[in-house]
Amino acid sequence: HSLPGKKTTNKVVSHLVLVEPGEIFASPDPSLPDSDLHTLTTLCEIINRDLLITIGWAKHVPGFSVLSLVDQMALLQSAWMEILVLGIVYRSLPLSEELVVAENFLLDREQCRNTGLLHLHAVLLQLIRKYRKTKLDKEEFVTLKAMALANSDSTNIENVEAVLSLQDHLHEALQDYEKEHHPEDNHRTGKLLMTLPLLRQTANEAVRTFCQIRLEGKIPMHKLFLEMLEAKM
């Protein structure tokens, strides 16, 4: 787990920083020659592993584990791609045009063009530019990620009140954090929340892209990734 970058008195935010998973690394199959299919295979393998990590992480989001199993499943099935996209976007903030899918697996525009991911690359860059302009920090990133999980707009929620309470809890945490760290900008919480529609739009585009890859059937995809994609169909 990463150590907090700055001290914050908000316990939810500091807990989220503490439980943030460590860096993710690609483990490409050395027996495969370098090719666009190999790139996509590695990408799908990273996504599957990131999904496993994300499900483990969700259990540590304050208030998530007290929800019913049905509601935990509903939130994750709705929000998993937003959570994965936000991770890639945050990792890519220091670079100009490349997507940092894993620490040792970057995708540039040309690779995205060759693998059919050019449109996805473009929409991800729009989101990256937006967060770069906002100077999104780690505390805000981890809190927004938890908010994406709680705010998934799933239609399969059993206990709506409990999910609304989780949303309020995280909203308060973000407001607290901004009061403490950005007192000069009263609108910063709102600005961050106003990035969530583009995050959802980008995640939906990513789901469409991987559903297409699945339909084409050329790339091996792990069972968890397939199961989560199917939940989106």
Binding site: I55, G56, M73, Q77, L224, E227, M228, A231
Partner: peptide, 19 residues
């Protein structure tokens, strides 16, 4: 839950490191 058995199992039982 039958259609989503891996997610169900991961949430109910193990940590991801068990998989």
């Amino acid at each position: 839950t039958e259609r989503h058995k891996i997610l169900h199992r991961l949430l109910q039982e193990g940590s991801p490191s068990d998989i």
